[in-house]
């Protein structure tokens, strides 16, 4: 771990600190990126397709086109993230080379390596990774992830998995906190994680990096729910640019801008029901979505890369 200069752990984890209390929005065009920035997104995720379209399209989902990511990087002043396939360290090398601010090693894309994740400590660019529970989170942090997001089930607009994963993560943290020191080694063994990280979780009472919620957030209420459950910010994928279905293109953009702005406000005032009611007024239809229960387990994304 470098102490000075660039790419230190402090600056990698530090950018995530700056994103806290914010909304990171999936965008597939420069126009989307500008709408997101204007609505107050703290970062954008540059993608070719939002998760619900990836799900619908089938086939192999890969890193987005370099040209698209570069165009989006040029079009906004907020940080830009992009996704690499789990274990695809060359996609990550390319994303680092073009200068994205964060790489998401993501289960939303098809896995490139079903055994190993990317050795994220070897990179200058910081990584965010998904988790379903404390064990997954600490394994990713041990590999070098400087930020964590609970996975949820991307592209569904169904919040149930996001809630399940956030509760599981905090349940795991509370278990570590209440355990006596002489039981931490066995907890580490059961979780298949380094003992030092378990000790760190006990000391801090939280993950040692920033934790956001992802996968299913479609309304301001969903975003505030995840914040009240202990998220430090949220990723919204399909929830913004799949809202306003059935409207004309121009009307849909207006509806999506309002949804984006309302979710940003809901994350700031997540503990204030009057304010949440206020920001929820005047919104159009949220994304239609698909219940996770209707998706065969083999097609659920969250079980990729554990």
């Amino acid at each position: 771990m470098q102490r000075e200069g660039t790419a230190s752990w402090t600056v990698k984890a530090g950018l995530a600190q700056m994103l806290k209390g914010g909304v990171i929005m999936d965008v597939v065009t420069v126009e989307h990126a500008k709408i997101a920035e204007e609505a107050g997104a703290c970062a954008v995720m540059a993608l070719e397709r939002v998760p619900s379209d990836i799900r619908a399209a089938g086939g192999v989902a890969r890193m987005s086109r370099v040209d698209l990511i570069e165009e989006i990087c040029k079009s906004v002043t907020i940080p830009v993230m992009a996704k690499a396939r789990i274990g695809h360290f060359v996609e990550a090398q390319i994303l680092e080379s073009i200068g994205v601010d964060y790489v998401d090693e993501s289960e939303v894309l098809t896995m490139a390596d079903d055994v190993h994740h990317i050795d994220k400590n070897a990179f200058k660019v910081p990584f965010v990774c998904g988790c379903r529970d404390l064990g997954e989170a600490l394994r990713r942090i041990a590999e070098g992830a400087a930020m964590i997001r609970t996975k949820g089930e991307a592209g569904t607009g169904d919040i149930v998995e996001a809630v399940r994963h956030m509760r599981a993560l905090w349940g795991g943290i509370r278990k570590v906190q209440s355990a006596p020191d002489d039981e931490l080694a066995v907890i580490a063994k059961d979780l298949q994680v380094p003992l030092d990280l378990v000790k760190e979780v006990k000391r801090l009472g939280k993950l040692p990096v920033v934790n956001f919620s992802a996968g299913g957030i479609a309304t301001p209420a969903d975003a505030a729910l995840m914040m009240q459950l202990g998220a430090e910010g949220v990723f919204v994928g399909s929830g913004i640019f799949k809202s306003g279905e059935g409207l004309t293109a121009r009307e849909a953009i207006k509806a999506q801008s309002r949804m984006a702005s309302a979710i940003v406000k809901a994350v700031t005032y997540y503990n204030d029901p009057d304010m949440l009611a206020e920001v929820s007024r005047g919104l159009g239809d949220a994304m239609r979505g698909q219940s996770v229960a209707s998706i065969p387990v083999s097609q659920q994304l969250a079980s990729r890369g554990v």
Binding site: Q17, M18, L19, K20, G21, G22, E37, E38, A39, G40, A41, C42, A43, T77, I78, P79, S261, V264, K265, T268
Partner: peptide, 15 residues
């Protein structure tokens, strides 16, 4: 604090 200046500015105005 630190954060995203565009985000904080939008919220200052909105509220």
């Amino acid at each position: 604090p630190g954060g995203e200046s565009t985000t904080i500015a939008r919220l200052l105005i909105a509220f």
